[in-house]
Write a protein that binds this DNA or RNA. Structure first.
Lengths: 157, 157
DNA sequence: CGCTTGCTTCGAGTGCACTCGAAGGATCTA
DNA sequence: TAGATCCTTCGAGTGCACTCGAAGCAAGCG
């Protein structure tokens, strides 16, 4: 697990309104020089070249640019997208759902509503997940303090 | 996924101090009648009988009682344990780590410290996970409001 | 010029956590 | 006493998300 240093992701592909806004040095190279090779992207994201090609194959990358000879050239937007995918992965969202979202982006602006709904559903799921985890922390705290008390008691003995 | 209705879990096995305390009706049957068959437990937890036996096989169940003829009879404590395991599973903790914890319980009270440490580590991990998820929610909010704005704008047009 | 990196396609392997089925027998319940 | 439920052991299958290797060839770079 190498990195995924990139964090702030802006809406991708069809919505490039804030592509360069409020992002001082989030990308390895500035707009204009953002034509990364696959191994560069692998280094930045911690994903392998194999996995990056696989993402593209299954439709999880909304179209990566190519050099005149057919080599992949990833852009800052692609990096943003990958960072976003990384976040979604952390939520446990199945890859199939991410692919769905990527498809909607490929289709165009008429899918804004559906995209919003998908993200809203995801958001709801993530909040539920957070609640579950907080619940778990409570249980853990309970048990941890039990052990703390027990050990204090045995010291006193 | 059937259920796992049980939620509050009390320290299990070696620490039965609060076994019946502050738990008015958390268990299907009261203390004394808590000798559940495997299919009952399967119904309560949503796990299959296969999975319950598998948990035992790999050491994830600290010793289930048996009837005089060798059939499993689960106790309320076993149910608590299963509920706890369910919570840990939600955190993404690998089964091997849970087995480790179960082993420590089997060994006895001299492992209190190690158990406490293990739980503390887990707690830390869960808190990190929560932070990541909150981060993700922020990204999601960002994108959702982008789509909301975009759709409002297109309505105005 | 040679080495590294990249491309494609194909297919197999990995790790995790189940999940299921079957054989062959014992026990429980109505 | 019949049919449901339980036991054991064994081994295979599933789904997900990679992960890797190899073949065979094109391109980049020092």
């Amino acid at each position: 697990m190498g990195g995924m240093t990139l964090t702030q992701s802006s809406p991708v592909s069809t919505d490039r309104l804030d592509a360069c806004v409020a992002a001082p040095r989030l990308h390895p190279r500035p707009h204009g020089e953002d034509r990364y090779t696959i191994s560069e992207v692998a280094a930045f994201t911690g994903l392998t070249a194999h996995t990056l090609r696989w993402y593209e194959r299954i439709g999880l990358m909304p179209h990566v640019d190519r050099s005149h000879t057919g080599q992949r050239r990833f852009s800052n937007q692609d990096l943003d997208w990958l960072a976003f995918v990384g976040k979604l992965r952390l939520t446990g969202m199945p890859v199939a759902d991410m692919v769905r979202y990527a498809e909607l982006i490929r289709v165009g602006e008429e899918t804004f509503e559906e995209r919003q709904e998908l993200l809203a559903r995801t958001r709801r799921d993530v909040l539920n997940r957070i609640a579950e985890l907080q619940d778990t922390v409570a249980v853990l705290d309970h048990k941890i303090s039990f052990y703390a008390d027990a050990r204090k008691a045995s010291e006193r003995a």
